[in-house]
């Protein structure tokens, strides 16, 4: 059975709190080959994809304290690190990022909020699996492919709206706690 989302969150915590190498190795075995595949799918050659993936995984260790499980799954967080590294190292552009609003909780996040986001994420994963092949491939191209792909005009009904509401709520709480 695939390790669940909570397992990956625990791995990030163990890296953050204990510099736990075995937790890192777990994450590396699962995510590094996926990050490398993502980079190669976009047209990057194997050597550069390998080098960039190592940088992405090292960043994950060094920024473990910034991960907020109420706003992103571990997979989502790694996706954003890999995407930014791709733009920076491969496309040679700067990546302007929005102003930080406390990504990186001082206190431990509310476990209920973490669970809710996990449920939303699981629903999204299921919804993607149940899409017709053609639509799945189109979405994959939009994120992972290079620029020259066909037009995309189909609605998929993915449950992104619930995730957006959840994150909106988390942001409101964050604003409230800072006020």
């Amino acid at each position: 059975m695939e390790p669940d989302q909570q397992h990956w969150i625990d791995c990030i915590r163990r890296i953050r709190d204990d510099k736990d190498q075995s937790a890192f190795i777990d994450l590396f075995r699962h995510f590094a080959p996926r990050v490398k595949a993502f980079l190669m799918r976009g047209g990057t050659d194997a050597a550069l994809a390998e080098e960039t993936t190592q940088e992405v995984m090292a960043t994950l260790w060094n920024k473990a304290h910034l991960f907020d499980p109420t706003r992103a799954s571990v997979a989502t967080w790694i996706f954003t690190i890999a995407r930014n590294r791709k733009i920076d190292a491969i496309r040679k552009q700067r990546r302007p990022e929005p102003e930080d609003i406390g990504w990186g909780p001082e206190a431990e996040p509310d476990q209920e909020d973490v669970l809710s986001l996990q449920q939303d994420t699981a629903r999204l994963n299921e919804a993607i699996k149940s899409l017709p092949d053609k639509q799945r491939v189109l979405i994959e191209h939009a994120y992972f492919g290079d620029l020259s792909h066909s037009e995309i005009a189909e609605k998929t009904g993915l449950p992104l709206g619930t995730i957006k509401s959840r994150i909106r709520l988390a942001l409101e709480r964050l604003r409230h706690s800072m006020a």
């Binding site: 996926r34 992103a72 989502t76 996706f79 999204l124 993607i128 699996k129 993915l158």
Partner: peptide, 13 residues
């Protein structure tokens, strides 16, 4: 952040 979640879900699929 929701669209980022879609990217993350694709990485897991």
């Amino acid at each position: 952040e929701s669209y980022d979640a879609l990217g993350g879900a694709l990485l897991e699929d």
